[in-house]
Simulated assay, not measured.
Amino acid sequence: MANQEILPGSTINTESTKPRILLAASGSVAAIKFESLCRIFSEWAEVRAVATNSALHFIDKKALPSNVMLFTDDDEWSSWKKIGDGVLHIELRKWADIMIIAPLSANTLAKIAGGLCDNLLTCIVRAWDYNKPLYVAPAMNTFMWNNPFTKRHLDTIGELGITQIPPIAKRLACGDYGTGAMAEPSEIYTTVRLSYKPRVVVDECS
C-alpha cells in the first residue's frame, strides 16, 4: 500500500472497511471451482468477478452469489461510449485492493508474462498497480506445467511482484496424474487472508 499523508487531527481506522477482492478466472477446467471461490471470499470481503470467454465454458453464472457482480469481455467493449466514460479495466483496477486469478491457465500465464492485453482480465493485469497484491493460482496439465516455458513465465511475473499459489498433484480432469491441479479454494482463501493488511482509512476530525 502506498504511503499516505495523514493530516493533523485525523484518526486512523483499520477495522471498519472490508477488503475489496477482484476474483478472475481464465480458461481452465478448474474454473468449475470459481463459484466456491466467490462464496468463500464474499463471506469476508466485497467481491467482484471477471471471467474470460474460455472460462465461461466452466462457470454457471446463475450459481454465483447474488452479491458478486461478474464482468466479461462483452462488458469491457460495451461500457464505453464516449470520451469521459469510465474504462472498465481501469475502474476495476482502481476499485480492488487485491486481485486473484484462479485458475490461471497456461495461455493466460503466457499472455501476462509477454505483456499482452487482449481481453478484460489481461488488460486489468497490464494496468495493475503493483503496490497492491496480485495472486495467481495456476492450473494446467502436468506436461504443460513441466514445460520450460512455464517456469520462464512464472519467473517473469514473479519479478513484477505477483505471488504464486502453487498447484497440487492429483488425478487431473484429462486423466493424467501429476502436478498441475489448482490449489483448493480453501488454501487460496487462507493464503490471501493470512497475508492481508487492512487498508488505512483516515477520518478527519472537524
Rank of each mutant, 00 (worst) to 15 (best):
N3F: 06
Q4T: 12
E5V: 12
L7D: 12
T11R: 14
N13T: 08
T17Q: 13
K18D: 09
I21L: 08
A24D: 05
V29H: 03
A31F: 03
S36W: 02
L37F: 08
C38G: 08
C38N: 10
V47Q: 03
R48K: 14
V50T: 03
A55S: 10
H57Q: 12
D60G: 11
D60W: 06
K61E: 15
L64P: 00
L64E: 06
P65V: 04
N67E: 14
V68M: 06
V68Q: 04
M69T: 15
T72P: 01
D73E: 11
W80Q: 10
I83A: 12
D85L: 04
D85G: 07
D85F: 11
V87E: 11
L88R: 04
H89C: 01
I90N: 02
R93M: 11
K94E: 14
W95K: 08
W95G: 10
D97K: 11
D97R: 07
M99T: 15
I100H: 03
I101A: 03
I101G: 01
A102D: 02
P103G: 05
P103K: 05
N107F: 00
T108W: 01
I112H: 00
I112A: 00
G115Q: 05
V125E: 07
V125A: 12
R126I: 02
W128N: 03
D129G: 08
Y130G: 08
N131T: 14
P133G: 09
P133A: 06
P138H: 02
T142S: 15
F143S: 11
W145Q: 01
N147T: 06
R152S: 15
D155E: 14
I157T: 02
I157L: 08
G158E: 08
L160E: 07
G161K: 13
T163R: 13
Q164K: 09
Q164V: 15
P166Q: 04
P166V: 04
P167D: 06
L172H: 02
L172Q: 05
A173R: 03
C174N: 14
C174Q: 06
Y177N: 14
M182F: 10
A183H: 02
A183W: 01
A183Q: 09
E184I: 06
E187H: 12
I188R: 05
I188D: 00
Y189F: 15
T190P: 03
T191H: 01
V192T: 10
Y196P: 09
Y196W: 13
Y196N: 11
D203Y: 04
